[in-house]
Amino acid sequence: MTTPAAPAAEPVLYLDGVTVTFDGFRALNELSIVVEPGELRTIIGPNGAGKTTMMDVITGKTKPDRGTVRFKQHDLTRLDEVRIANLGIGRKFQKPTVFDHLTVVENLELALKGERRPLIVLFARLDADERARIDEVLTLVGLTARARAPAGLLSHGQRQWLEIGMLLMQDPELLLIDEPVAGMTDHETHETAELLRRIAGERSVVVVEHDMEFVRALARRVTVLHEGRVLAEGPIDHVQNDPRVIEVYLGR
C-alpha cells in the first residue's frame, strides 16, 4: 500500500523544461521552477535573464516552444490569458497599469472576482458584500482617501499599490508581481514588502525584483535566473554568496 501524497505536496505552479525562442534568441532555456502553495518566492536576475518572459509564459501571453507549464492540474500552455486569469492567476506588470480614466474604486470594482460575461456585466450592480470587500482592499493598500480620484491622478507608488489592490480583488491563488517597488521611496518599499508578506500565506506570490534591499526585506526563498535558466535557488544569504551568482552580477 502506498501512502497517499500529502495535499501540500501538489505545487501551485510547476514549470519544467520551458523553452522560448524569439528569432533564434533563447529567452527561456529549459527553465524549471516549482512554487508551493502559500509560498512567497522572489526571482532575481540580470536584464534579459528571462524574468518577464517567464511571467508571459505563465499568464498565457507567450506560448512556449516546448516544456510543461502547470497551475495545479491545469495545463497553461493550452489556455489564453483570459482563461488563465479566471483560473486564479493575477499579474502585476512591471510598468504600473491601471485604468487612468476610471476612479480608484472603479478600478477595484472591475478587478472584483465575479461574472465576466458582457451581458451580465451590463446589468451588474455592487452588493453590500462587494462594497465591503472594496473598502477592505482600499484600506489594505492605503488608498481610502483617494477612492473617488481618477487613477490617472495617483502618484507612482499609489498606482503600484492600486494595481496590487486590483490583484487582491481578483482573489487569485497565485500572484505574479513584476518589480513592484521600481520608483518607490524607501518608506514605500518597506510598506510594500510588508504588504506582500501579509498577502503570502493564503496565496502563493511570485515577485520579480531588482532591488536587493527589497528582496532581503522579503526574506524568503530566492531563485536566480540567468540566460533563461535557473542559476541558483535557496535562501537569500545562501544565494548571495554563490560564486556563480556573484560572477553573473559583477561580470566576468
Binding site: T59, K61, E81, V82, A85, N86, G90, R91, F93, T97, V98, F99, D100, H101, L102, E106, N107, E109, L110, A111, R116, R117, P118, V121, L122, F123, A124, R125, M166, Q170
Partner: peptide, 29 residues
C-alpha cells in the same frame, strides 16, 4: 451602456487593453 459596469470595462479596454485581459475579461467578447 456607458454608465454601466460594462461601460467601465470598455473604458478600461481603451486605457489598457492587456490589463483587462489579465483581469479575466474576454476583451474579444
Amino acid at each position: 451602456i456607458v454608465s454601466s459596469k460594462l461601460g467601465r470595462v470598455l473604458v478600461a479596454i481603451r486605457d489598457a487593453e492587456s490589463r483587462v485581459r489579465f483581469l479575466g475579461y474576454s476583451v474579444t467578447a
